[in-house]
Design a protein around this nucleic acid. Structure first.
Lengths: 213, 213
DNA sequence: TCATTTTTTGACCATTTGGATAGAAATGCA
DNA sequence: TGCATTTCTATCCAAATGGTCAAAAAATGA
C-alpha cells in the first residue's frame, strides 16, 4: 500500500506531528490566498516538505482545507458557550466581546479563513451554520432577551447584538490592513488595546438599561 | 491592429456598453469566487460572449478586476464625504450609518469584492487606503471629535466609531449567508429592516452625550 | 543483520486556464 | 459597391497546478 495513512486506528506521534506541521503551514497559506489562491506547492514549501509528501498525508488540497475548517470551527465558536445566564448581564456580554476580540488578535489567520469561507458562500460549513451555530445563538439570544425583559439590559435585539459583536471584533482581524493603513503613523497605542477600550465604551453605553423604573 | 481598444480617445457607445456588460458579469463572478476563483470562461459565459471577446475588450482578467475595483472605490467611499460639520451630530452619524447599510443591501456584490480584496492584503488598493481614504477618515474623525469635545456626542474614539459603522453594516452584505442561516425560518421581517432598527438603537444609545453639564 | 513497512521525493501526467493567433463576420464609409 | 476598420470567435498554446507513480531512503522489528 502506498496510500496515505488517512485516519488509521492509531495515529503515531510522528504522523500527528507531520499532519500538524502541514495544517499549520496550510493555515498560513489559506489565510492569505484563500482556497483557490493557495497551491500545494506553496503549502509544501511553507511546511518544508515536498508536494507529494503533503498529498501523502492528506490526499488532496481540499482535504487539508476541510480538515482545517472542521478542526477550528468548534474552537472558533466556543467562547459564546460560556455566556451564562447566572452571571451579571453586562459583565457576561462584555466578557464575551473581549474574548472574541482576543481571538481576533491571537487567531487572525483563523478569522480570515472563516471570513473567506463564508464570504464565498460557506459551501462546506453551511450545515454547521444553520445547525449547531444557529442553535447556540438562539439559546444565548434567549438568555439575553430574558435579561432585557427583566430590565437588566437595554432592549436590543439579541441576535443582532451577537452579530454586531462578531462584526466589530472580527473586523480588526479580517481588515487589519485597512485598519492599520488608516491609523498608521499617528497612533502609538496597540490597535487592539484601543479597540477594546472603544468597544467596551460602545457596548456599555448601549446596553445599560434606562434608569427608569 | 488587432489590439483591444484600451482607452481610446473616443469610446463609442457600443464599446462602452460592451465593457459595461463585461464589468457587470465580472462583478457577479468575482463577488462569488474571488479573483483567483474567477475564470475568464465564467466571466465570458456570464456576459454571454466568447472568451477572446472578453480579452479583446480588457486585455486580461486582471485588467477587468482592477478596472472594477478602481471604478467602484470612489463610489464605495463616497457616503462618508457627506458627513457635514454643519448638521446635527447624531443625525449626521446615523444618516451615514443608514446610507452604508443601504449600500450593503443594494451593493452586496461590491461589498464582497472589497472585502475579499482587503482580506487578501489589498495588494492593489493599499495606496488608496493609506492615501485618499485615510485623509477622508481623518478629516471626518476631526469633525466628530469636535462634536464630542463640545459635548454634543459621547466621547468615543471617532476613528474606531467609523470602523464600527463599516464593520456592522458591511457584515450584513459580506456574511449574509451566515446571518440568514441563523435568522432563517423564524423572522418574517426583512433582515436589513431589522438591522437598521438595531443599529439605530445601538448608536443612538452609545452616542447620546451624558445629560451632565 | 536483513526483511518489511513507512516515509520521502524526483519525475511525470492530465487538466485547467490565461491568453495569443488568424481569420470570419459585421460595420462603416467612400 | 467595394475597401477598411472594427467586432467577434474557433482553435491553439504554454504555464500553472492538482495529483500519480515508482523507487529511494529511513525506520522498524525479528
Amino acid at each position: 500500500m502506498t496510500t496515505a495513512p488517512a485516519q488509521p486506528k492509531k495515529e503515531t506521534r510522528i504522523q500527528r506531528q507531520k499532519r500538524e506541521v502541514i495544517l499549520e503551514a496550510a493555515l498560513d497559506v489559506f489565510a492569505v490566498h484563500g482556497l483557490r489562491g493557495a497551491t500545494l506547492d506553496k503549502i509544501a514549501a511553507a511546511a518544508g516538505m515536498s508536494k507529494p509528501h503533503v498529498v501523502y498525508y492528506f490526499g488532496s488540497k481540499d482535504a487539508i482545507y476541510t480538515t482545517l475548517l472542521e478542526s477550528l470551527l468548534e474552537l472558533w465558536i466556543s467562547p459564546l458557550k460560556d455566556l451564562s445566564p447566572k452571571g451579571d448581564p453586562m459583565t457576561e456580554i462584555l466578557t464575551y466581546m473581549r474574548r472574541k476580540l482576543q481571538m481576533s488578535r491571537d487567531m487572525a489567520r483563523e478569522s480570515k479563513l472563516f471570513a473567506t469561507e463564508i464570504l464565498h458562500g460557506a459551501p462546506r460549513t453551511a450545515d454547521t451554520l444553520s445547525g449547531d451555530l444557529k442553535a447556540l445563538v438562539d439559546e444565548k439570544a434567549t438568555i439575553i432577551a430574558a435579561w432585557s425583559d427583566e430590565g437588566k439590559l437595554a432592549p436590543l435585539d439579541p441576535h443582532h447584538l451577537i452579530f454586531s459583536i462578531w462584526a466589530m471584533t472580527q473586523h480588526y482581524a479580517d481588515f487589519d490592513i485597512q485598519v492599520r493603513a488608516i491609523l498608521k503613523p499617528t497612533r502609538k497605542n496597540d490597535v487592539f488595546d484601543e479597540a477594546e477600550a472603544f468597544l467596551t465604551a460602545l457596548f456599555s453605553r448601549s446596553l445599560r438599561p434606562e434608569a427608569a423604573e
